[in-house]
Simulated assay, not measured.
Amino acid sequence: MRILIVEDDPVLRGVMQRSLADAGHRVDVAASVAEAHHFWCVQPFDAVLLDLNLPLDEADEGAGGAQLGSGLAVLRAARARGDRTPVLVLTARDRTHERIAGLDAGADDYLGKPYDLAEVEARLRALVRRSRGTQDRTAAGALVLDRHVRRFTLHGLPLDLPAREFEVLWELMTPPGRVVNKRTLSEKLSDFDETLGDNALEAFISRLRKKLAGSGAGIRTLRGLGYMLEAQAAPPADGMP
């Protein structure tokens, strides 16, 4: 998953970033209202971790932060422009009014501080599953993805993949049969300072097709639309029509 962390506390932000990155996710961080608003507008994310209490500094005010005001306003602005990215709000445990305000503004879930990092990741997985209508375990032919342990298996054996190929296949399996726009896929796999070009993306797709050969799962290119991973009918047995 590609995740945006919006948190002004550098210690908490760093701990969450390392934990989610170590779990295999691509993580971007924003420490202010202006950064959060900018990142969320220009980059698609699978989920957002949002602290509601963000300070306003001079940079925020110069970038429209005075109008945004807080993490809550960043959330409201995203929902107002039709962005339905799942949002997990982080709040102090004793601030019930913050939790209510966050949910009313369009948050999907909340978690009180202090929190367990394993629970953060579990809640993010649940939010993304809910938003896409998927389960922890998904299959296409002999290819199986277990999101809970972040593992692919093929014919019952672990399928070890380089990081970028893993991310491409993860996106195509969430869920299978969904058309994934080439640009969206490229953006989710890119960094702000490094863009994944079409040639590199097509190379990943080509290598994955070879690894999935004979598995009953295939990646189809839909010209002008993108890619789709789907279960394929097994070839007829020898001697059968």
Rank of each mutant, 00 (worst) to 15 (best):
P241T: 12
F45S: 11
E7C: 12
R13W: 01
E121C: 08
V149F: 08
A63Q: 12
E165C: 03
K211Y: 01
E58F: 03
A140T: 00
L124E: 02
L161Y: 12
A23W: 02
E7I: 14
V120P: 04
H25W: 07
T174K: 09
P176L: 07
T134Q: 11
L68T: 15
R125Y: 04
P114L: 14
Y110P: 08
D94C: 04
L56M: 04
L117S: 08
E230D: 12
S215D: 04
E7T: 15
G141S: 13
T195E: 15
E202A: 14
R76S: 10
A78D: 05
T134V: 04
L111P: 02
R151E: 15
A66H: 12
P241Y: 11
Q232S: 13
A237P: 06
L169N: 03
R13P: 02
D46N: 13
A107Q: 04
R209C: 08
V144A: 11
R183P: 01
E7Y: 14
A234P: 01
K113S: 06
V179Q: 01
A34Y: 07
D28H: 12
L196N: 00
D238L: 13
M240L: 12
D9G: 10
L145F: 13
D51Q: 05
E7R: 14
K188E: 05
E167H: 13
E187L: 15
L169Q: 06
T138D: 00
E187W: 11
R164V: 14
F152I: 08
G239T: 11
L88E: 03
V168K: 08
D8G: 02
W170C: 01
P236S: 06
E167N: 05
F204D: 15
D238C: 00
E98C: 06
F192N: 05
G71S: 05
G224A: 07
A200V: 11
T85R: 01
D193Q: 07
R207C: 00
G65K: 11
M228D: 01
A80V: 05
A31F: 10
G24P: 10
P175N: 06
P86V: 05
M240K: 04
G24Q: 10
L189G: 04
V42P: 07
T134R: 13
A23I: 00
L72W: 07
T96P: 02
L54M: 11
L143Q: 03
Y110S: 12
I3P: 12
V87W: 03
H148V: 01
A200E: 14
M1D: 03
G64N: 01
R130V: 05
S70N: 09
S131C: 10
A126K: 13
P55M: 02
A107D: 04
G65F: 10
G197C: 00
L161G: 02
P235C: 00
A139E: 15
P236G: 02
L20G: 01
Y227L: 06
Q17N: 06
R81F: 08
L54A: 02
L208R: 09
L12K: 02
R132E: 11
L49I: 11
V74C: 15
R183T: 11
L20P: 05
T91D: 02
A122Y: 08
L185Y: 01
T174I: 01
P175L: 04
W40P: 00
V11I: 15
L117W: 03
Q67P: 03
Y110A: 14
L212F: 06
N181H: 12
I5F: 03
R84A: 15
E165N: 07
A203Y: 00
